[in-house]
Design a binder for these strands. Structure first.
Lengths: 330, 330
DNA sequence: AGCAACTTCTCTAATATTAGCCATCATAAC
DNA sequence: GTTATGATGGCTAATATTAGAGAAGTTGCT
């Protein structure tokens, strides 16, 4: 495989001149430039970026850590990250953490070993202190899920008011007994969505009943299970708010299996607006996050951090939207 | 940020000795080793892999090119690739080509610039000649979709017999007029699935009717559209075989919208067994590919190629399975 | 002609690491 | 005491590239 020296030799110039041609320096005569380009083509030369990266101590790679490639929600976010990255000459390394702290640690080695210039966490698993430490040493941005108070920038939505809006929608349809399917984790999004649910009930003069919250793990099956628990209650709810579309779809499945109809007997609202939400039967009412933009903004923020233009951590909230479909109104 | 020299200085040894400790060479006394490890810890030293990679001219990175992160089918394949890669000390760079030849080319620069040691194509877009050229210069494996005759290894399933099995299943249920939703592309999988469909009809004494094949683009909407075309026919089919689950789900949606029932009025079979296939109502009968194993085997093959143990291109077919669910039998 | 200014290119050092050779030291055998 | 052996670790070169200093050549002005 040809290297820069061979190119220089063939073109009859020094390696430095070849380097200048490669990097578009203007102090190379047109004639020399052409001779070099010809030699590059003839030798099918591709610069070895390991050398360049070492010299420049940058890699133009960024690390994107997501909990799960198969979660369709993150797919659009990643698209936003990639588009902005490419526009700015960066490549993205997508990595699956499976929300496993060890996997996350292993991937962070890539950053520590200087094989990436920065990192975007889509759902950090580590603790606040650790994240703070990483944030002090490397460019970091959190996107979607985030840890508050770690001194690390993030881009997300206002989960509290999104949940509030979803529940208020159900109330406006006349529902008074509204179940919730949440998760037993410590994500900010979860806590805020639960808080929004409670506040919406409170503001509507409906008493909060702890027993109406059931817990899943974001999976379809857990949604089925949680919904069955709600349906088995003596006075069962007439509406269900799930904090993810997949669990909402599980709930619909459970409701149908009990011989009930959505939305006539029980209305269902999800969260995320994944592509399947509008494919399901009935189509799912849900909160739409600006997934693509979340990714774009996160990447733009990271670029600013990497260029040193931004010292202070930023907190950015993008707009969300309640999308009303068949699962609440026919 | 500390480098190897500082560690050496602090431990009172030469950089070479630090390098030996890092790489587990045995010619370092226990005592020296401990002193070095102590210094590494104290300085919070992480070796800069750019230097190592340059020296060794390998990166322990592999490139995985997929057409679309949001396609849940590939999510499991990727998991297989990652698991085997990690077990062997490799990291995976996941990249989205969007089936765009230019995106694919840009990503291949990573390989040509020696930032990755090998590549797995999940659905190559380039032509046969180009692929051959890449295959001659770099370790390459194709996984799932592939180009035949390019002299490049691949791992896939026997799409012909999978489609044959799916259609035979419909025939065994008494269906005589069976529509197909395919795609207008040149993927081997598409051609083979169409061929399997035709052969199954032929072997069952049913005459092939060109008009019963409609075309989509793997999207939900295109599935709806294609199914509507089939339903609008004078003598409409009583069963539909789609070459992807997403299009099959679109077809079910279309059938329901026409006021018909699945499977009573029209049976539907999909392909891939994505997670949503078993969440949908009705649950989808489909062909299950060993997604995880496809990824594992592809990565194992790539590792063999990279180590130079394998010169000849391999063709590997894994087993598939027809999963019968509610969309064909109630 | 002499000098300045500019263009164009070369040379050297630097980046972080490892491979391979060689030097040193201790121990054991003769 | 001398030599051989093995363990340990130091030194140098090598990897591919770029930044920066400076050299050489050209042009233009006085």
């Amino acid at each position: 495989m040809a290297n820069i020296r061979e190119v220089a030799k063939r073109a009859g110039v020094s390696v430095a001149t070849v380097s200048r041609v490669l990097n578009g320096s203007d102090s190379v005569s047109e004639e020399t430039k052409e001779r070099v380009l010809k030699a590059i083509k003839e030798l099918n030369y591709h610069p070895n970026l390991l050398g360049r990266n070492l010299r420049r101590s940058e890699t133009k790679m960024i690390l994107a850590l997501m909990p799960n490639v198969s979660n369709p929600f993150y797919a659009r976010v990643v698209k936003g990250i990639e588009d902005v990255a490419h526009k700015n000459g960066y490549n993205v390394m997508l990595c699956n953490t499976d929300s496993d702290i060890n996997r996350e640690k292993v991937y962070l080695e890539i950053l520590k070993n200087r094989l990436a210039d920065g990192v975007i966490f889509m759902a950090p698993v580590m603790g606040k202190e650790e994240l703070t430490l990483i944030g002090q040493n490397y460019p970091v941005v959190q996107c979607c899920e985030y840890i508050e108070g770690a001194g690390v920038s993030y881009v997300s939505i206002d989960n509290f008011s999104a949940a509030y809006k979803a529940v208020k929608h159900l109330v406006s349809l006349g529902h008074k007994k509204i179940g919730m399917i949440s998760c037993e984790n410590n994500f900010v999004s979860t806590k805020q969505r639960e808080a929004g649910y409670k506040k919406a009930l409170e503001d509507s003069g409906i008493e909060f009943d702890e027993k109406l919250i059931k817990y899943g793990d974001y999976s379809f099956k857990s949604g089925v299970r949680a919904a069955k628990q709600l349906l088995a209650m003596e006075e069962r709810p007439t509406a269900i708010f799930a904090i993810s579309d997949i669990m909402a779809i599980g709930a619909i499945r459970a409701i149908k299996e009990e011989g009930l109809k959505v939305p006539e007997d029980i209305a269902v609202v999800g969260f995320d607006d994944i592509s399947f939400a509008s494919m399901y039967d009935p189509m799912l009412t849900t909160i739409s996050q600006p997934k693509y933009d979340l990714g774009c903004v996160a990447m733009e923020l990271l670029i600013k951090h990497m260029s040193g233009k931004l010292e202070e951590p930023q907190r950015i909230f993008l707009e969300h939207e309640l999308i009303i479909r068949e699962s609440t109104v026919k």
